[in-house]
Structure formats: C-alpha cells, structure tokens
Amino acid sequence: MSCPEKYIAYMHEFLDEDISKENEQELRDHLRTCPSCEQHFKELKKAIAFVQSTAHIKAPDNFTMGIMANLPKEDKKIEVSRWLKHHPLLAAASLFIVLMAGSLFTSWNQDDQFSFSKQPNLVVENNTVIVPEGEVVTGDIVVRNGKVQIEGEVQGDVTVINGEKYLASAGHVTGEIREVDALFEWIWYHIKTTAQETLNLEDEQEQSLQ
C-alpha cells in the first residue's frame, strides 16, 4: 500500500466520530479513487459489525443469589441495632434488667459496714447484737455484717446478712430466722422484701379505702 498513513488515521477518527469536516471530506475523496484503502475501510467496518453482532448474553439464573450468599456478614453493630428496632419492648426490658442488676450489685458492695435495726433493750458488743436473757423484743431485727446472739425472746423476724446467728437454748423467736450470705441470696432477699413491701402498701391502701 503506497497511500499515506494519514488516511488510516482518518478512518479511525471517523469510526470514533472524532474527525474534522475537512479531514472527512479528504478521506471520502481518497476512498473514491483508491480501491485498496476502500477495501481496508470496509474490512474495519466489517470487523466492528461482527463484534457488535455477537448476541447479547444474560447472566446465569442464580447469579445474584450466589453473590448475596458470599457477601461478608453484616456488621455486628448493625445487626444489633436492627434487632433493637424490631423488638423495642424486649430491648427496654433487657435494659431495665441490666440497670436493676447494676444497682443491686452496688448496694451489695456498699453495705459492708456493721448495722442493725434499732430496737429498745438490745445490747451491742463488738459487732454482736445481743438480745439479753429475760428481755422481750417486739418487732423485726435485721443485722448486717455482724453476729446476733439471742438469749431472750424476739416477737418478730430475725435476718442476718453476711453474719452469724446464735440462738441460745433459752432464746426464742416467734417469726422467721434467715441468714443471707451469698450475692444471689441477697438479691433474692431484696426482691422478696420489695415485693412484700409493695404488697403491704396495697393492703394498706385497700384498708384505707375501706
């Protein structure tokens, strides 16, 4: 082929729709007079037509499913927040339980000082609460972090938290005697007393209504 290279370049500019008017005219004039360049141009257009004629194919049926199955697991945070959105009541309940447990735990830890319920005629010696012989205590006694020694009579409940109780043979307690040691017992005790208090409140309210 003896034609200048520029005509081939013009052909490609034409195919890219990127040719100036003058060059396009020049190319057309040349193609009319030069069979080998005309042949070259035809072959280029034919090659393009062949490529364009390849049938458009579609992705296989399970293509999207295959991708979704292989995506990395969603972020834990997102999973949790989505779960919370779908279960607001459960979320509120679990938050409540967590906070309750927290407050119980702190109150357990704070109360490591010796204390007891004040009642007349109780004697205290070295962290030991003594109900003296012959005396009658009316009402409940609660002792924290100490011992209780009962030689007289208690008309009510005796509760020992984190301590020991000693009941003398002459001693007598009309109500319940309870010893609370472990954390869970303490929680259980807490729940029971709270429940009882609320029940008592209701009773009182009912009585006052009557």
């Binding site: 458009h56 194919i57 579609k58 992705a59 999207t64 979704m68 969603e74 997102i78 989505r82």
Partner: peptide, 21 residues
C-alpha cells in the same frame, strides 16, 4: 451504607447482565 444488604441485591440485579457480558 446503612447496612442493608438486600438493597445491594437490587443493585446487582440492575448491572449483572452488563458485567457478566
């Protein structure tokens, strides 16, 4: 971006044929 994987499935559906081709 908010973490909804199902929305990505819709994007895949839109482009799967082109990309596979």
């Amino acid at each position: 971006l908010k973490g909804d994987q199902n929305a990505y499935g819709e994007i895949v559906e839109l482009y799967k044929d082109k990309i596979f081709q």
